Lab assay of single mutants.
Amino acid sequence: DHWHVHIDGERIRLDGASEEFIRTLEELIRRGTDARELKEIIKEYLR
């Protein structure tokens, strides 16, 4: 599956992301997590 998110107007691909990770991201977004912080979390995950 190819997922991607838009954060700060930037399109970030989440290739190979699990549904669990996507749900976690959605939860963080709902909580109002800062965009820079979200991008860091995604970069760490994709390593």
Rank of each mutant, 00 (worst) to 15 (best):
D1M: 09
D1I: 07
D1R: 06
H2V: 08
H2Y: 10
H2C: 04
H2G: 05
H2E: 14
H2I: 09
H2P: 10
W3P: 15
W3G: 08
H4I: 09
H4N: 04
H4D: 08
H4E: 12
H4Q: 05
V5M: 05
V5F: 05
V5K: 04
V5E: 02
H6T: 13
H6C: 08
I7E: 01
I7N: 01
D8M: 04
D8W: 00
G9E: 04
G9R: 03
G9T: 04
E10A: 05
E10G: 04
E10C: 02
E10S: 05
R11K: 15
R11Q: 15
I12S: 01
R13M: 12
R13P: 13
R13V: 13
R13L: 13
L14D: 00
L14H: 01
L14R: 01
D15M: 08
D15R: 10
D15Y: 08
D15H: 10
D15C: 01
D15F: 10
G16D: 07
G16F: 12
G16P: 04
G16T: 09
G16I: 07
A17H: 04
A17N: 04
A17I: 09
A17P: 07
A17G: 05
S18L: 05
S18K: 08
S18R: 05
E19T: 12
E19N: 11
E19H: 11
E20P: 04
E20D: 12
E20Y: 05
E20H: 11
F21A: 02
F21E: 01
F21K: 01
F21R: 00
F21L: 07
I22L: 10
I22V: 12
I22F: 08
I22P: 00
I22M: 11
I22H: 05
R23I: 11
R23D: 06
R23S: 10
R23Y: 08
T24Y: 14
T24R: 14
T24K: 14
T24N: 13
L25I: 13
L25V: 11
L25G: 00
E26G: 07
E26H: 08
E26A: 09
E27G: 06
E27V: 05
E27W: 04
L28D: 01
L28K: 06
L28M: 14
L28H: 08
I29M: 09
I29H: 02
I29D: 00
I29K: 03
I29R: 03
R30M: 11
R30S: 12
R31D: 08
R31Q: 14
R31N: 13
G32C: 03
G32S: 04
G32D: 04
G32H: 05
T33H: 08
T33K: 04
T33S: 07
T33W: 01
T33P: 02
T33G: 06
T33C: 06
D34A: 09
A35W: 08
A35S: 15
A35E: 08
A35Q: 07
A35F: 09
A35V: 13
A35N: 09
R36V: 13
R36M: 13
R36F: 11
R36Q: 15
E37N: 08
E37Q: 14
E37M: 12
E37T: 15
E37R: 14
L38V: 09
L38P: 00
K39S: 06
K39A: 08
E40F: 07
E40S: 09
I41M: 12
I41N: 01
I41H: 05
I42G: 00
I42Q: 00
I42P: 00
I42C: 02
I42R: 00
K43F: 14
K43L: 13
K43D: 15
E44D: 14
E44G: 07
Y45F: 12
Y45N: 12
Y45W: 11
Y45P: 01
Y45S: 11
L46H: 08
L46D: 06
L46Y: 14
L46F: 13
L46N: 07
L46S: 03
L46W: 11
L46R: 03
R47S: 15
R47L: 09
R47H: 14
R47K: 15
